[in-house]
Design a protein around this nucleic acid. Structure first.
Lengths: 342, 342
DNA sequence: TTGTACGCGTTATCAA
DNA sequence: TTGATAACGCGTACAA
């Protein structure tokens, strides 16, 4: 009842040739006669032979598997990056193993270990929100040859290639756009500053203000999370304060959405009274009651670039030394109704 | 410069014990003295030993990897199912390998083969749109012990477990809801009938009409794809016909969205003049200009159920015979403004 | 309690 | 052009 798949031994027995010959025939080795090649391949097909990549990997040291660690897989951004990586690597024979960290550094650490045990040829990761210390990553770098590639949420570690978007520029672009539309009191919904991306968006915001002779008011920087509720709360807080803003640049589309909902509830008009612009260009932004402006992170391209960097790394890595590449993609500003007053 | 990780041989040499002892110590074998256990584990840590799961898998025949084949990974539905599978299996030590078929049966076939070569312990899949013939799947069933589990988009093959939602019921619920709201001329945007899910949604629609003494008019069944443009085209076609509908039950949220856009353009009021209800409960539906009703497929639960069925299958599979399970989940109707006239 | 030696399925080296 | 055999790293049956 148990169906064990045929091995090259089974083929070699059946044909009365050595396993070496079978292996070479199947791999189109140049010094094997055409006749035996065809014979071997034919009987291999008949016997339903399937190459065992496990054994091959054990011998060669290459599994042709890569790991990807993301906080959650079912968000538009991360699933799109994964799509990009898969599409870049699949044609080169790689498989992609997905792990979710749930924003928990403990789980992230565990996944890193199991991926290494599984002998993956490389690891792509976006660090979790709770990843502050990075010794667990540094130690992999020190003790293994497995290349690690950060995308989007990176940490500064020498020897690790990164693919990011220019979040600073994204923040700058969004803010400058609001200024050009004539808004005067622009506030910012900042994200978790433990993550560089949110720091950079904030810094871009600040610099755009300064470059346009605006003042950076600390009261205008609200630390929200990335949830709808956080956006709602932020509006409540702001509208109870002395200085009510006339524009919001949110580092998260979801917080921006919450803001829109709360503003509507209060009958405050977008974009006439208040402009809103988000970040990530989530699919829902363009279908909202009032289509929302947002900064696109080009996630599929990010994934493809990450894949390319990995492939180059593998190719160059004959020497055993790792090459560090820093790819920075330019975000794309999508201007929609929520921020167009003119 | 090349860092090769330590093996049990390295540890055995260092401690002057046999590899067997090292192996057993690391695996907490009962008949190993506490002293040597601790010593071995300590030095293993010192030498930065990492178990090579490749070798283990080659020996044991279990890779603790499963494959998932979906058309595309970056859709809300599929990425949510993947999340469910990963969360169900990860605690049991499994890794999840993702493959995209791009709706192409040729690619699907290739992925199936490479997954088998990789010796995965199981394969989860949603068939591609172009998968009509199923001999490539049947032959895996006949020649290997690798369990296959269909989710959502299944084919009827004996011996394959399936996790689906009751699409028939979903179609029935949506249609009946429209009838109860007083709509009289309900049309249906049908999907690719090569996929059972769309057949079932259509059948549920038909039966709901019949059960409520409505006539099923073939002209009211439009075969659209699942794109926004298809929805737009469908409206154009319908509004040029003799019988203009007052309600639309779309088998796709995106086609429904296109319909909403085109209806708005034509200044036709939703839900007063025409009701719209979609399928999948995509995140954008609740944030639309006019929040859209939709049928939720509970994808994360679907993924978890698929994972559970796999685990049960593995457990029971000592005998080498595969158990076939059919899990049918109940869809959830989300009624929003686009279909509430009363 | 510990050691020896084999097998898992490949590929590669050395001989023939 | 082909064959015999070692090696990859691990677990384990059989011995001691």
């Amino acid at each position: 009842m148990n169906k064990k798949s045929a091995t090259i031994y089974d083929i070699s027995k059946k044909l009365n040739v050595s396993v070496a010959t079978v292996s070479r025939a199947l791999n189109d080795h140049p010094r094997i006669s055409q006749a035996t090649k065809e014979l071997v391949k034919k009987t291999a097909k008949e016997m339903n032979y399937k190459q065992n990549n496990l054994a091959k990997a054990l011998k060669s040291g290459e599994t042709k598997n890569v790991g990807i660690i993301v906080p959650f897989v079912n968000t538009n951004f991360f699933s799109s990056v994964i799509r990009g990586i898969e599409e870049e690597l699949s044609p080169h024979g790689y498989h992609v193993i997905i792990c979710q960290s749930h924003e928990d550094v403990i789980i992230e650490k565990r996944h890193l270990n199991t991926l290494l045990n599984a002998q993956v040829d490389g690891i792509f990761m976006s660090v979790s929100r709770t990843t502050i210390d990075t010794e667990h990553i540094q130690s992999i770098l020190d003790t293994t040859n497995t290349p690690i590639i950060f995308f989007d949420r990176k940490k500064d570690i020498a020897g690790i290639s990164t693919i990011t978007i220019d979040d600073y520029r994204g923040g700058y672009m969004a803010t400058e756009h609001l200024i050009q539309e004539g808004y005067k009191n622009i506030c910012h919904f900042a994200g978790d500053l433990n993550l560089e991306i949110y720091q950079n968006r904030l810094n871009g915001y600040k610099q755009a203000l300064l470059d346009n002779n605006f003042q950076v008011k600390e009261d205008n920087i609200i630390f929200t999370g990335s949830s709808i509720d956080a956006g709602i709360d932020a509006i409540k807080k702001l509208w109870n304060s002395k200085s009510i803003p006339d524009a919001i640049f949110s580092s998260s589309d979801f917080a921006a959405l919450g803001a829109c909902q709360e503003l509507k509830k209060r009958k405050i008009k977008i974009p006439q009274e208040v402009a809103v612009i988000g970040f990530s260009n989530e699919p829902f932004t363009q279908f909202m009651e009032l289509p929302m402006s947002s900064v696109d992170q080009t996630p599929v391209i990010m994934g493809k670039m990450a894949g390319q960097v990995f492939l180059e790394n593998i190719k160059e890595n004959g020497s055993g030394m790792s090459i560090e590449k820093k790819v920075v993609l330019t975000p794309q500003l999508y201007i929609r109704k929520s921020s167009k007053r003119k």
